[in-house]
Design a protein around this nucleic acid. Structure first.
Length: 106
DNA sequence: TTCATGACCGTAG
DNA sequence: ACTACGGCCATGA
């Protein structure tokens, strides 16, 4: 496993409830600004094995990346449960809910 | 090692 | 606003 992957996992686990991060953000903080896809990949792989807050990770457009209706609804539900306002289309206000590790929002 | 793939991102029409 | 294309890089066969 690459160091990048481990860092990405740490960053993801560091996301506080009620906040979200984009793949690109996580990748950037993990050391690879262009490694957004690897973040997605590790989430897909690790979420089932580790306890990662995968639902707090969304794409740069502030929307849920899932294509499967089931998982999409699950993520929406979880986020709403944490106090994040999610539109019917899976739209989220990044300006309001984006978590910045350096800013220490928690 | 090489090839193909992916819960992405940014730019262009 | 939405669709299409190319680039990115770790992972698995």
């Amino acid at each position: 496993m690459e160091a990048f992957t481990e860092k990405a996992i740490k960053v993801i686990r560091n996301i506080p409830p009620g906040r979200v991060m984009t793949y690109g953000q996580i990748a950037s903080h993990a050391g690879s600004p262009r490694g957004a896809r690897q973040v997605a990949r590790l989430l897909h792989s690790m979420s089932a094995k580790y306890e990662l807050p995968w639902h707090r990770v969304i794409n740069a457009q502030g929307k849920i990346s899932f294509q499967d209706t089931d998982n999409r609804l699950s993520q929406t539900k979880l986020l709403q449960n944490e106090g994040v306002e999610v539109c019917s289309l899976g739209k989220i206000d990044l300006k309001h809910y984006r978590h910045d590790p350096g800013h220490d929002a928690f």
